[in-house]
Design a protein around this nucleic acid. Structure first.
Lengths: 135, 135
DNA sequence: CTGCCCCCTGGAGTGCACTCCAGGTCAACC
DNA sequence: GGTTGACCTGGAGTGCACTCCAGGGGGCAG
């Protein structure tokens, strides 16, 4: 381990494919990644740090465009911290909403599952099962 | 209100667009929807019931292909209830995993937010702020 | 010297889920 | 009778996020 990471190491670490990493770079999520004399990329600690956040935000469905905007703020310097904070807080809010929605839907699905289980239980126990109310 | 619903009523009720409803029909999520003599669609209670579930499952990211498979089971008759149950249970499991992942990411994002808040607090109170550990 | 592997490039292709469009029908209202 | 509005059709187009491809280079093991 030296002060940089090869593409393969990054692929392994984050689970992004080579192509996805190049795509992110093209899209401005990563600033120009350093190169070895051979032309091969050398990812640095700052890239890794940003990719960590990218992983987190992509996994929570932040679109690429917003990630690029965030990355640009990071590049613009420390004075953009308030704006970055706003971006993250807005995202956290949407995420909380999304989780709440998923949980509500999850409840509905479990009700449906229970309904089907009821149907099966009746089927198993009775020759001609009664009609069941679908909740 | 009669025993059927117009396309506009369905659009209003579920928030699916006309085009999306037609797309779902083409994709086999709804079986052939009844028509008025004019050719206009007439959605019935059974369509509404299925659309309710479609809303639920789409909102929790079940792909169209799996929804079609489910719809086919529904059409095939009551003997497919065990299979439908399996589909729903598998989906519920994926959904629980997804929610757990989102919550984990949510924690990480909140840590990042707290970190940025710390930076700002230091900025506000100190002329030359100390370096802060990024968690 | 010969493979072989890892990596490079620009650009084209893919999959999914819609979404839009042009042109037409039908019923109702003025 | 004309206009309006809701709806119809098949098919093309869109947006997003990758993902794949063909062709090429550098460096090292055998």
């Amino acid at each position: 381990m030296s002060d940089h990471y090869t593409p393969a190491e990054i692929v392994h670490r984050f689970g992004f494919s080579h192509d996805t990493l190049r795509y992110y770079e093209r899209e401005g999520l990563l600033s120009q990644v350093e190169r070895a004399p051979s032309g091969h990329r050398r990812y640095r600690a700052s890239d890794v740090e940003l990719l960590d956040l990218v992983r987190c935000l992509r996994d929570t469905d932040m679109p690429i465009a917003r990630l690029r905007a965030f990355a640009e703020l990071v590049r613009a310097g420390d004075h953009t911290v308030p704006e970055r904070l706003e971006v993250l807080q807005a995202h956290a809010e949407r995420l909380a909403d999304r989780i709440a929605e998923l949980r509500a839907r999850q409840d509905a699905i479990h009700h449906k599952i229970d309904y089907y289980k009821g149907v099966l239980a009746l089927d198993a126990g009775v020759d001609s099962p009664a009609v069941l109310e679908n909740g």
